[in-house]
Simulated scan of single mutants.
Amino acid sequence: MLKQIFVAATLVSTLVVTGCESMPAQDNTITENLNLLQNRTWIATQIGNTPIKTAPNAHNIPSIQFDAASKRVSGADGCNRIMGGYNAGKDTITFGPIAATQMACLNNNGLDRQYHAALEKVTHYQVFGKTLKLLDHHGNLLIQYESAVQPR
């Protein structure tokens, strides 16, 4: 009887210690992913499977920035400036309503509309090095970005 109690107590204490040790690792993963996502400029390189071709000196190149302190997103859609709120977790992300300026968009082949349509479907993200992928709930690529190189 004493042996059974000892085995049960050992098993319970092992589970408690193992459970407590695994929690900070998950929190660290969330923090690491958010650190990779936030507070940098991301330049869009493709929408779905279609590459985005823009001149380096073009205005309002499709881009996005995630501000960690305010939980606000800002950037451009290929024509207009965009802004709104966001909420991100380990690999999930949701956007609040995205507002945009209303400039006349000439010769951008509907890039701004494609960009907004893709943003509306985003539910997940992945960051690997200098690449950010915004994905739908099936894991399909909606928008891919590269981290912008900041001048010194």
Rank of each mutant, 00 (worst) to 15 (best):
A76Y: 08
L111V: 09
F95G: 04
I47Y: 03
H116F: 10
D27E: 12
L132F: 07
K71G: 06
D91M: 00
A118W: 03
G75T: 01
G85V: 03
Q126G: 06
G96T: 13
K53N: 12
N57R: 09
T31V: 07
A68Q: 13
N39A: 02
I30F: 10
N39P: 08
L132K: 04
D27Y: 15
A44K: 05
A76L: 06
D91L: 02
E120R: 15
I30T: 07
N28D: 14
N49H: 10
P56E: 07
T18C: 15
H124K: 10
K121N: 09
E21M: 15
I52E: 03
T54V: 14
T94Q: 09
G48M: 12
G19Q: 07
K90D: 08
H124Q: 10
N35Y: 12
R40K: 10
P97W: 01
A69L: 03
C79E: 03
R81A: 13
D91R: 04
I93W: 01
S74E: 04
E21D: 13
T92F: 11
T41L: 11
Q46H: 08
A44G: 10
T92H: 12
H59F: 14
K53H: 11
A118I: 06
L132C: 03
I47E: 04
Q46V: 05
R81H: 10
T18D: 12
Y125F: 09
A99Q: 04
A118Q: 02
K133Q: 11
Q46T: 05
S22M: 12
G19K: 09
L134Q: 03
A100P: 08
R113W: 08
G110W: 06
Q102N: 06
Q114S: 15
R72I: 05
I64R: 07
M103Y: 00
I82H: 01
N60G: 08
P62W: 06
R40G: 07
G85M: 03
A99L: 02
